[in-house]
Write a protein that binds this DNA or RNA. Structure first.
Lengths: 202, 202
DNA sequence: TCCTACTTATGACATTTGTCACATACATTG
DNA sequence: CAATGTATGTGACAAATGTCATAAGTAGGA
């Protein structure tokens, strides 16, 4: 019997996933968490065979969770598997297109889980964390100030107001905002803010 | 046996939900759609008992779907049920106006969901308690054009682009946007868009 | 029919943004 | 020290946005 902990912030999915996986004969969901932090705690308490985690979660992301577990691996033998979609751009997609076998952990527990997952969700798969860190490396090009400025601009604040909030001159605020716009290849700061927002950078 | 169609743009949730509901003895998921348009087509083909839909979807939102179904209700007896993550004031009112029978949050446990479905089937109306407090929020003061303009502006589109999309002159677009700004007592169209968005008017 | 309301449009003007070239100050490093 | 880099600021100009007065066309009601 493979003992599993699931981490996923949307409780609808969390509930559904655990209910469905529990139906499988050789799988048992022994813990559920809404973010990486909770999951980490559960891992240390329960020492499961596998942690199945989403990537985007508040407080502690799936990637951070994977790293934390990796760091203390002498304490337990838990493997981290990341639940993801093919649809994402970048490295992972290219790897998939080239027919690379994504499930790097070639042991039977992860295979069983992978099978179950693909049975349940078409188009979904689980992968080893090492892969995803590469794939997710579309890093935020924004500086700290740029990020803050976009955020405030997206709330409808004027340049003056933004300047006051972050203690810079209005001119400098415009310089940074202009920088951000060109980095994100947007037409104006609103579009830039939207792009950054969608990528989860704000 | 209650026959259900599900509309939801996140395929993860779509899959989980339908698998889960299919487990119930008295429920049968007969169709899945990624947006309101697909759902509407399926409704007309399959005449289900219940459509379970998300609100925010591309092409056609859940509310628009509800309105479309309400409009042709003599053709079929389908009931609409809305499942949403973020309850923003104004949603409920619009949903009710469109004859929706239920509003539920996505993080209600799934047995509650299944339970609700049966009740809806029996003709009852259910609303998530979280929504009731916001239920009688102010009515949307925006005209149709104003709403559309704010929406597009919030995506970072320029006046010119907006004008092209909705087939008006740039000058008129600016007039409407100015109108909207003063109606919502905002400083500029971005702030106006944000206000409207928060109230669930976009 | 006339009146009114609504939609769409224009022009003029002020304000806000976007862009760029260029300073100034400060810290780091060779 | 001199050289370099980074954060910040200024000024000037172009472009986009916000505001307002006003007008043409259209539809509906009295």
């Amino acid at each position: 019997m493979i003992r599993i902990i699931i981490a996923e912030d949307q409780s609808m999915i969390l509930g559904a996933l655990s209910a469905l996986l529990d139906l499988e004969d050789d799988l048992s969901v022994i813990g559920k968490a809404n973010n990486g932090e909770q999951a980490l705690k559960l891992v240390n308490e329960l020492n499961p065979d596998i942690v199945l985690t989403d990537i985007e979660m508040p407080i502690m992301t799936g990637i951070e969770l994977a790293q934390a577990i990796q760091k203390q691996k002498q304490k337990h033998s838990t493997k981290v598997m990341i639940l993801t979609t093919f649809a994402r751009g970048g490295y992972l997609k290219r790897a998939m297109d080239a027919g690379v076998k994504v499930n790097l952990l070639k042991d039977s527990p992860s295979d069983v889980l992978a099978d179950s997952i693909s049975k349940i969700f078409a188009g979904k798969t689980i992968v080893a964390p090492e892969l995803v860190t590469e794939a997710w490396a579309e890093t935020d090009p924004l500086s700290d100030k740029e990020r803050k400025i976009l955020k405030l601009a997206y709330e409808g604040k004027t340049t003056e107001e933004i300047a006051k909030v972050i203690c810079l001159s209005p001119g400098t605020v415009r310089n940074y905002s202009s920088e951000a716009v060109s980095k994100l290849e947007a037409k104006n700061r609103i579009e830039a803010a939207r792009i950054a927002w969608q990528k989860g950078w704000l």
